[in-house]
Design a protein around this nucleic acid. Structure first.
Length: 535
RNA sequence: GUCCCCGUAGCUCAGCAGGAUAGAGCGGCGGUUUCCUAAACCGCAGGUCGCAGGUUCGAAUCCUGCCGGGGACGCCA
């Protein structure tokens, strides 16, 4: 949150407490229109009810208090129909432009160092990454960076399910591709991608089951990581299920559940008594099958104990749409371990439909029908793909039209934003050629409505980032950047920045556009998109 | 049957921690360049926010029901 917004909020809260004796959380939002100033406060409405007084009177009292408290920052405070509208001052904005020149612009301590674990992608090591994985990667990685910018200690984590039935199925499938068995097993993976791995395994002379398993998983995981790197996504931590299985955590889990009387045996299997938790709509789930083999759920719970054991105060999992039915189970399990919603959260990344040649492709790894992340990156550049995935909320289904993506080069709004940055770089270069410099700029010369409007937009940058961290939804940043770029393009059209006949004004404007470029660069950087000097 | 997501402009979607006149991109129509990048800018047209109730000073936003579309519901992972 911007410093001024924090100050305003804290002050109003204290003021209300002192004056009216009411605990009240003020809602301070960007004014919907420039003519209403920068920030609007709606406190008068809610207080009017409690105090049984006219909202206009209360608004006026708040307004007066605010304007006398912040003589430097606040130019005036207006009251319109009960809204308290705060207009910030010129000196304040001049100061803001200076701050916006720093690479730390937008940083704040909203997260207060909270240690957060973000687990995303976590694709099974049974094949290449698909487009939902790509979406999750774009979302998770951007969140990690934005949250760090907002003072969270955010870590990204990738979980590798390198054990269990699916790995057996993978091994048997690759053996079929190696010619070591006559047919593809029923639950096998039919995708062509296994052919190249089979060849490599054959060349390595590997035939033993255990060795095949180990190598195929490593090869696929390695390729996944390479693709993710190409997508500019790196993980802080990679955890393997096989590690969890061998660790102390399954035992710890068992003991904890036993101590709470939350497990029982039926038909030779061991169940988790989810129904006893009451408020979660969930049935009892198997932890250990009657054949003695623990379920995925069992190790997943153990894995989450491990996460919290590493000191994370909040753990967020981003899962694909096929896992949504699994959410209540995990929530119930973690609640049983006293880890409720405040500390453990699951977000579902909704499906991505690939449209190719005008029709939808149904994707199934097992059937071998895929559209992979690396194929996507062969067709669309990384900047465009990263930006594209953040153009809409991940909670909504996304139609990704490959044919459109191919020709998206000019239409994709990412270029619109990048172009603003490139244009500014060009201005700076040209200015230098003309002997103009930003040195010793007098920012008081920035008086046009367009300049004011852009400064106002800069003001909201930290607010947008904080909101993203809070809601764990990164897509508003693309809308923010597009809006800022739009305002710049408009400004560019109307006003000359580098004008040799007016070096003083040019210095001020050069400083100003540099600040704009910097905000764009920071914003794009946070979502893994480059800010080119030229286009 | 139970659960999840979606329904806002011709199309794809923002907005949904309730606030003031509902926005963007694309598409359509019409303009702008001897001038710092036209990958740009400006203007116009286009909406009963799926429907019906409810809560509220105030509802696209919250609640209930219904309709329509997509998806998930294993001793798979």
């Amino acid at each position: 949150m911007s410093k001024i917004k924090t100050k305003l909020k804290n002050f109003i809260q204290e003021f209300v407490k002192e004056k009216y004796g009411i605990d009240h959380e003020p809602i301070i939002s960007p004014a919907r229109d420039e003519k209403f100033g920068e920030y609007s406060v709606t406190s008068a409405f809610s207080l009017a009810k409690e105090l049984r007084r006219n909202p206009a009177e209360i608004a006026s009292e708040i307004a007066q208090a605010v304007s006398s408290k912040f003589p430097f920052e606040v130019e005036k405070v207006d009251i319109v129909k009960g809204f308290v509208n705060i207009y910030l001052s010129k000196p304040f904005f001049q100061n803001l432009v200076k701050e916006a020149l720093s690479e730390n612009f937008g940083r704040c301590n909203a997260g207060n160092g909270l240690k957060v674990n973000l687990e995303f992608v976590s694709a099974n090591p049974t094949g290449p990454l698909n487009v939902v994985n790509a979406r999750a990667a774009a979302v998770g990685d951007s969140l990690r960076q934005i949250m760090r910018h907002c003072g969270y200690d955010a870590w990204s984590e990738y979980y590798v399910n390198d054990a269990g039935g699916q790995i057996r199925a993978l091994r048997e499938s690759v053996k079929w591709r190696m010619g070591l068995r006559p047919d593809l097993p029923e639950d096998g993976y039919a995708g062509d991608y296994l052919i190249q791995y089979a060849e490599r395994l054959r060349d390595m002379g590997i035939t033993e089951d255990h060795e095949i398993e180990r190598h195929i998983v490593d090869m696929i995981l390695n390729d996944q990581m390479k693709t993710l790197e190409r997508f500019r996504v790196k993980f802080d931590v990679i955890t393997r299920e096989s590690f969890i299985r061998k660790s102390k955590y399954p035992k710890i889990l068992e003991e904890k559940l036993k101590a709470k009387n939350l497990i029982y045996e039926r038909d030779g299997a061991i169940y988790f008594r989810a129904t006893s938790l009451g408020d979660i709509d969930e049935k009892d789930r198997v932890l250990v099958r009657s054949n003695g083999e623990p379920t995925y759920f069992y190790f997943d719970l153990a894995y989450h104990i491990y996460k919290f054991d590493r000191g994370f105060q909040k753990v967020v999992d981003f899962w694909g749409p096929d896992h949504h039915g699994y959410v209540p189970r995990m929530k119930a399990g973690l609640k049983a371990l006293d880890l409720d919603d405040e500390r453990f959260d699951v977000k579902i990344i909704q499906q991505v439909n690939i449209i190719k040649d005008g029709k939808r492709i149904r994707m199934s790894k097992r059937r071998g029908e895929l559209f992979t992340l690396s194929e996507l990156l062969d067709e669309v550049n990384v900047d465009a793909a990263r930006f594209f995935f953040l153009l809409r909320s991940y909670s909504s289904h996304l139609d990704f039209d490959i044919d459109l993506a191919r020709e998206i080069s000019v239409k994709n709004p990412v270029y619109y934003v990048q172009y603003a940055h490139a244009r500014i770089s060009s201005i700076m270069k040209k200015a230098q050629e003309k002997g103009l410099t930003a040195d010793g700029a007098d920012l008081e010369l920035l008086v046009t409505p367009e300049e004011r409007s852009i400064m106002r937009e800069m003001l909201f940058f930290p607010d947008v980032l904080e909101d993203i961290s809070l809601k764990l939804e990164p897509h508003p940043i693309t809308y923010y950047l597009t809006g800022l770029a739009e305002k710049f393009h408009n400004y560019y059209q109307k006003h000359t920045v580098a004008d040799p006949s007016n070096p003083e004004l040019s210095a001020a404007r050069l400083t100003f556009v540099q600040a704009i470029a910097n905000v764009i660069k920071i914003g794009l950087g946070l979502i893994g998109v480059s800010a080119p000097e030229e286009m």
